[in-house]
């Protein structure tokens, strides 16, 4: 039983299996998009605009007569990749900062702590809005904004993990054997701190999808005609009574995907038995 890695074991949970299935489905659809749909996401067919769901267009069409399901699938590409990439950057930087703070203590630690408290003093959406205003609209700006908005979370989590691990016997043992700082950090401390950080990164990806959608609502992020779930909802908000499906489906896609991430994350936490580790730094 232990031979299976935890992410697969999590699929064995009833909810975890369902959620993991949905996530795999969305990911597969995003990757295979061109083979799944006969429509292009960017070709307009103006006479077909504002069509409700039909056999030809399962979820209806948008204001340019484009197939909504097609755009939803391609939108998954943008939304998931932007969120996941942003969180990946955020995790990497957060781990470096957190580990450095915990390991060196003293002023680097104090500086990192103040910086963390600093970013936590602003709601994430505000950090993101201001950063995008500086960097400019488009996916890069949004990615950086999301990465910075969640940086504090991973820094703090990594720092707390390393702090507890620092005093443990195996670290002392390694030190006594003459291991250098780098060796201890990268071979002993970070790998042990990895599981909780990765799980919380996964949960944060869910939040990042929502944040990306919210920025898309303000017209920031992927530029037309490239679809993103947020951008689709933003266009749909002006059509809310004329063609409500244009806004309803992308919103459902976000909600269901984020629910799935949370459920799968819960299953993973149970499998890895790291609830206490996460709780301490929540």
């Amino acid at each position: 039983m232990m031979a299976w890695p935890a992410p697969l074991r999590a699929l064995g949970h009833p909810m975890g299996g369902l959620a993991g299935g949905w996530l795999l489905l969305v990911a597969a659809a995003a990757v295979l998009a061109p083979f799944l749909t006969p429509y292009a996401y960017d070709v307009q067919d103006l006479p077909q605009a504002y069509q409700p769901a039909s056999a030809a267009h399962w979820l209806g069409t948008d204001e340019f007569g484009r197939d909504l399901l097609t755009r939803l699938i391609y939108g998954a590409r943008t939304s998931l990749s932007v969120s996941a990439a942003a969180i990946a950057v955020s995790v990497l930087c957060g781990m470096v900062l957190g580990a450095a703070a915990a390991w060196f203590g003293g002023w680097p630690d104090r500086a990192v702590t103040v910086a963390v408290d600093l970013t936590w003093s602003f709601p994430e959406i505000l950090i993101a809005l201001i950063l995008v205003a500086i960097i400019g609209p488009g996916t890069t700006g949004v990615m950086v904004a999301i990465a910075v908005a969640y940086l504090a979370q991973f820094t703090r989590l990594t720092r707390a993990q390393i702090m507890t691990l620092k005093g443990e016997t195996f670290v002392e043992a390694a030190r006594c054997l003459g291991a250098g700082t780098g060796h201890i950090l990268f071979r002993h401390l970070l790998p042990n701190a990895l599981a909780p950080v990765l799980v919380s990164a996964m949960l944060a990806t869910g939040d990042a999808i929502i944040l990306e959608a919210t920025l898309g609502f303000f017209g920031l992020g992927a530029q037309p005609p490239v679809p993103s779930w947020g951008g689709m909802m933003s266009a749909g908000s002006a059509l809310v009574f004329k063609a409500p499906w244009v806004i309803i489906f992308p919103g459902l896609a976000v909600a269901i995907t984020v629910v799935a991430i949370n459920l799968y994350g819960d299953a993973l936490i149970a499998e890895l038995d790291i609830r206490q580790k996460l709780r301490r730094t929540a």
Partner: peptide
């Protein structure tokens, strides 16, 4: 409640408005 917390607030607002 999980579903409620995963809906983007602007979207939920518009749907409630609708």
């Amino acid at each position: 409640v999980l579903l409620g917390s995963t809906m983007p607030s602007f979207w939920l607002g518009l749907i409630l408005m609708l």
